[in-house]
Simulated scan of single mutants.
Amino acid sequence: MMKTFSVETVVSVLQSVVPAEERRVPLHEPVFEGNEWLYVKECLDTGWVSSVGKYVDRFEQMLCEYTGVKHAVAVVNGTAALHICLKLVDVQPGDEVLIPALTFVATANAVHYCGAIPHFVDSSQKTLGLDPVKLEQYLQEIADVRTDGCWNRQTGRRIKAVVPMHTFGHPVDLDRLVDVCQRYRLELVEDAAESLGSYYKGKHTGNWGKMSALSFNGNKLVTTGGGGAILTNDESLGRLAKHLTTTAKVPHPWAFLHDMVGYNYRLPNINAALGCAQLEKLPKFIERKRSLVQTYLHAFEKIEGVQLFTEPSFAESNYWLQVLLLDESYKDHRDELLEATDRAKIQTRPVWTPLHRLPMFQQCPRMDVSLAEQLERRIINIPSSPNLEAANHGEA
């Protein structure tokens, strides 16, 4: 029998899943239960704590092995990774870059760092990420494809790239997006910041774009405290990414020779040590998070007006953050629900403010983004830490 929707009912269901504690139940907290102490202590004991050391190389190799991508370059954060990705696909000042309106602000910031202009597109109900079908329809209206690329008839600017973000770990429809990019001469750069451990049709995200970016922020499934990585299957771009992110210093026993304007974006060895230990546990983390999905699905299956968002049929998601999706008729209860969970010491949060509404991006071009705006009013993220499911099953 279905239960009538109420804020109190939703809070009660959440309390039945998350452990009752004196402290606030966080949205997503890191789990350190492997070799983190051992590896970090080795860095401290040996003095190899900065941007050179064996753990940086090992971390990059582990990322390649896990994702299937040929080259990985560890950097200070996901935004830096995305910045370099855009530069390496030749995004120039004045270019437009197509990005979802519903994404974290870092996606647009990285575009701006290149002197380029974010161009906002709508989301898909199926993935919560960029909708390639709507994008193609929109490009048919505004784009001219020439020998020198794709041009916006309305602004007169070149449209250089598309940056899909795999929202909360759910991959976008990459086959369709790749097809759109090929026909409109657009570079594809995947913002895979949230999707380490997610697969599209059996292949890890980050393998479709010429360049891709990961994040290892403290709230990610794998954390290095702060950190990110550039992924590519292009050997020359991989070498150039490493060169640019290490101040473009030419190897030499003692001389300071730099042959390009570079960036001090290299990840320190001590952070990479933490990342190596975290990657060793990633399969277990994902197993727990996918189990947590089933726990939440069972808990909410008979509550009217709210549903748990689940992965699209073509994907296997890491479920980085669990999503409660309010029915359109109950969207006005979103803030009331956020306030009620806060009082109950359960951390929840709304999705990001659509970027076209932020003051610095209000004048940027955009298509009709009505679904993104609708989703913003309906999405609530709920506690998603891997250790929640461990607690439910009595794991140490």
Rank of each mutant, 00 (worst) to 15 (best):
V25S: 00
Y330E: 13
V75C: 05
G262W: 09
D57T: 15
A106K: 04
T67Q: 01
V40Q: 01
G78N: 05
W37S: 06
Y138I: 08
A344G: 02
K210V: 15
N381G: 07
L240D: 02
V293R: 15
K345H: 14
H119S: 09
F104C: 02
H166K: 14
R158E: 06
Q61T: 12
N381E: 13
Q363E: 14
K203P: 01
T167L: 13
G225A: 08
S313Q: 15
I303S: 00
K54A: 08
S329V: 13
A161V: 11
H356Y: 12
H166S: 12
L237N: 01
K345T: 06
E8V: 08
G225H: 07
G202T: 13
P164W: 10
L139S: 03
N77Q: 04
K345M: 12
Q154M: 07
M165H: 11
H356C: 04
M360Q: 15
R378Y: 07
N207V: 01
S313H: 14
S384V: 10
G78R: 01
V97I: 09
V351S: 11
E304I: 03
V172Q: 01
L375W: 08
K249P: 00
L14M: 12
V11N: 02
C43G: 07
A106D: 08
K203D: 05
T353L: 13
K3I: 05
V172R: 00
D342C: 11
K134S: 08
T224Q: 06
Q154N: 09
N35V: 01
G202N: 12
T224W: 00
P19C: 05
P268M: 12
C43I: 07
H166T: 10
R266H: 08
D144C: 06
S195Q: 09
G305H: 11
D327I: 10
W37T: 09
L128T: 11
D332F: 06
M165W: 06
Q278A: 03
V250N: 12
W151G: 00
V73G: 00
G305Y: 10
A81W: 04
E36V: 06
N233D: 06
D342H: 14
K331L: 04
Y66R: 13
R366K: 15
H119N: 08
I380P: 00
K70L: 11
V162P: 05
A72D: 01
L86D: 00
E141G: 04
D259K: 14
L267R: 04
V293E: 10
W37Y: 10
P253T: 11
N387L: 09
K249N: 07
V293I: 14
Y319A: 05
A143Y: 11
G34R: 04
A116M: 00
L221D: 04
V40Y: 02
E311I: 08
L355C: 08
L326M: 04
V133Y: 13
S329P: 04
T232Q: 07
H252G: 09
K126G: 01
L128I: 15
T107R: 03
F314G: 01
P359T: 15
G78L: 01
V11E: 02
A299M: 06
Q322E: 10
Y200L: 07
N271Q: 08
A396V: 14
K134F: 06
E21G: 09
E235H: 13
